[in-house]
Amino acid sequence: MPPQKKKFLFVNRKAPYGTIHAHEALEAILTGAAFEQRISILFLDDGVFPLLKEQNSGDIGLKDFSPTYNALSLYGVENIYVDEESLIERGIASDELSIKVELKTTKEVCLIMEQQDVIFNF
């Protein structure tokens, strides 16, 4: 019997562009997905900002990687969670996000974290 695949959670906690964290997280997620791992993603705190629609970073000389989040489903990543409280604190409504996500309460977020084998932080 093949060994049971581990459960990986990628936690995104940083805004895009100001630091490289959000973009690096996405690259790591896609690489993990290419190896068919059991991947979940959690967008928490400032990590919800990269999901806003209509980003256009041409004028600041950086690549706009927000369209790439739409490819996650094609890569087989299905568990995409967003901390609802983080959205509210930042004045963002869920329909302003560019992809379909599952909204989670603080309590649910804690549970999701505890259920993982490995957590990657960005």
């Binding site: 806003l52 209509e54 980003q55 256009n56 970073s57 600041i60 927000s66 302003e96």
Partner: peptide, 11 residues
């Protein structure tokens, strides 16, 4: 340009 990059122009 920072507003535009982050998609928050309307907000």
């Amino acid at each position: 340009p920072d507003i535009k990059a982050r998609g928050i122009g309307e907000k």
